[in-house]
Amino acid sequence: MSTRGRSELQINLATNIVIISMAMLFATLFMGYAIYRSSAPVWPPMGVQRVSLLLPSLSTVVLFISSFFCYQVSVSTKKNELSKGHKYLNLTILFGVGFMVLQGLLWNQMKSSGLFVSSGIFASITYAFTWIHFAHMVAGLLALLYLKKILKPETVNLLTKTSSVENFWYFLEIVWIIMFITLFVF
């Protein structure tokens, strides 16, 4: 194996292990959710209102657009058009931040409709899952900023590093979509 191929493999392995670890964390959360939900007589529990779908749907769209731009970053990097890559990266970050702002609005809305963190298991799950996902979004954003810093022609293994950050961003997107479907839609 060449030194170059080896260090590419190292980066890919490390990224995948990190993603598997985080996936296990979220899988545990969803397992708990499945148990709560299947053992509850009605869902949402008596006297609890569902969260309005507007903000979660908007968040989904915004995050999807952000992932689309993220995909464009790696496409441009592969074509060696780094200035285009920077432009798309800025858009990725912008829409990522937009998603986070929408999450803040969502929490506000839940609070003003009387759904507090301590108002039972439905609220516990909705708040805790979105918080934990948000914390990972912060990590994802830091990864994007790191990519912003290294997105230059002289960076070693640039393509591998770009695709690592990209995969991590997709992972966060996938987790959100599962949350959107299971927590808000159904």
Binding site: V117, A123, S124, I125, Y127
Partner: peptide, 20 residues
């Protein structure tokens, strides 16, 4: 990470008043 998820929920129960 599985234990990580468990202790996060426990922390949320203890500090923020969730009821997991």
């Amino acid at each position: 990470p599985v234990l990580g998820a468990g202790v996060i929920l426990l922390i949320l129960d203890r500090v923020f008043g969730t009821t997991f």
